[in-house]
Write a protein that binds this DNA or RNA. Structure first.
Length: 268
DNA sequence: GATGTCAACCTGTGGT
DNA sequence: ACCACAGGTTGACATC
């Protein structure tokens, strides 16, 4: 943007980024989301990526085969052990994440799921209740990440598995970041518009100045020593004039430049 | 039916 | 190696 052929350059010289402080040694150190954009110099502006979310889907047959039906509908009743949907695609891998308590909960839930399993073999969608969402939100406001103890406590309180609480927090952080990115994007768009306007205005101003310069007579471009005086002023001549020969300071003592705009020769 | 939302998942990465 | 997290994806469900 904004590179004028006359050497005037305009550009975005800052950036807006959302910074997420890294957590400390343990999980009690929470990353703090900086809700204000952090402006740094020299970041290029890219607005082409308008789609942020949920536009690309691909089908993985293997995953489909792996999926099993879950008892997720039961989850709405917020029963501690029915409130689990087990989707087997990642269960083996995930077991390393689980404490013995969680594994037990998982097993119980699996039993429920197995009992519930029907021929459709489709994954059921879990929706958190309003109360669960509210409590999670409240907890998220206090800290956007959880240590294992907090996770356990919250899970117990909500009748959810710790894994579900963990996933909720992960998704919640992602949404927060996405929202902030959208805000930053809007802000940068406005900055871009402002700078484009400014660029246009300066270009126009430059053109006017150029036109003004061209409109001046050619001797305005000459060095001062070779300037000729207004033709109607006979006392002071140009170079080689008789008067100036005797008085080298005559020109400097009373310069009388001709300016067709402000000083027409008739006024002399 | 198209589209948006969101819980659940997978993968890669960095810290310990 | 393990863990937590970010980022991306999937699929069920809601809404229009």
């Amino acid at each position: 943007m904004g590179c004028l052929d006359d050497g005037l350059v305009l550009g975005l010289g800052f950036s807006a980024t959302t910074t997420l402080e890294k957590r400390g040694n343990n999980n009690n150190e929470k990353p703090k989301m900086m809700n204000k954009p952090c402006f740094e110099p020299s970041l290029s502006l890219g607005l082409s990526g308008e789609t942020f979310y949920g536009c690309n889907k691909k089908t993985t047959d293997i995953k489909k085969v792996c999926e099993e039906s879950g008892g997720a509908d039961l989850f709405r009743q917020a029963s501690p052990h029915s409130a689990v949907s087990s989707f087997s695609s990642g269960r083996v891998k995930r077991e390393r994440d689980l404490s013995s308590e969680e594994i037990e909960a998982e097993r119980v839930s699996s039993r429920v799921s197995d009992e519930d399993e029907d021929a459709t073999n489709t994954r059921k969608k879990l929706r958190l209740t309003k109360e669960q969402s509210a409590l999670l939100e409240e907890s998220f406001k206090q800290h956007s990440t959880l240590n294992p103890k907090q996770k356990q406590a919250l899970a117990r309180q909500l009748n959810l598995r710790p894994r579900q609480v963990e996933v909720w927090f992960q998704n919640r952080r992602a949404r927060t970041k996405l929202k902030q990115t959208e805000v930053d994007c809007e802000f940068l768009k406005k900055c871009c518009e402002t700078l484009t306007d400014e660029n246009r205005r300066l270009q126009k101003e430059l053109q006017e100045l150029k036109a003004l310069k061209l409109a001046q007579p050619f001797y305005m471009h000459m060095p001062a020593a070779t300037l000729t005086m207004c033709p109607s002023c006979e006392r002071i001549g140009g170079v080689g004039d008789g008067a100036s020969k005797n008085n080298p300071f005559s020109i400097a003592s009373k310069p009388h430049f001709y300016n067709p705009f402000t000083n027409p020769s008739a006024a002399c």
